[in-house]
Amino acid sequence: MGPRILLVDDEQEFVLTLAERLQMRDMDSYAAFDGPTALEQVRSHPPQILIIDLKMPGMDGIQVLKQVKQTHPGIQIIILTGHGSEQDKINCMNLGASAYFQKPVDIDRLIAAIRQGYETVRSDDQKTATFDRYPKTGSWQP
């Protein structure tokens, strides 16, 4: 079985379709339509990869990113947004996101990023098994 992926976006049509496409590629993907639900899901059912939109009503993507990085630093986070600027990209990467995509996204590039993230998660897991400790942060260094 492939990586477990949580997709967070208020565009329901988009997020459900993308989830379906990822499932077709043997990835265990499920969707949340807002920030609080996503955090809830992360708590109850932590994914390995988290794909977040930046602009969402209520709680925006940056907040979700910060909170998840605090509680679950091991989760690889990919930003997928229609609104980003270069500055947003830099901010997100500094906060620990592993990849940043601007909509409309090419599915192959997204999948490549997911696979890379999954590799990171798995090697982290192995390290954890070896050294019996979690990496403190997954912060991205430019």
Binding site: F14, T17, R21, G82, K103, I107
Partner: peptide, 17 residues
């Protein structure tokens, strides 16, 4: 441009599907 990107990616993903 920002507003168009969201529906554009719905078209993108649906077609991809």
């Amino acid at each position: 441009a920002h507003e168009i990107n969201n529906p554009l990616d719905i078209i993108n993903q649906k077609t991809g599907l």
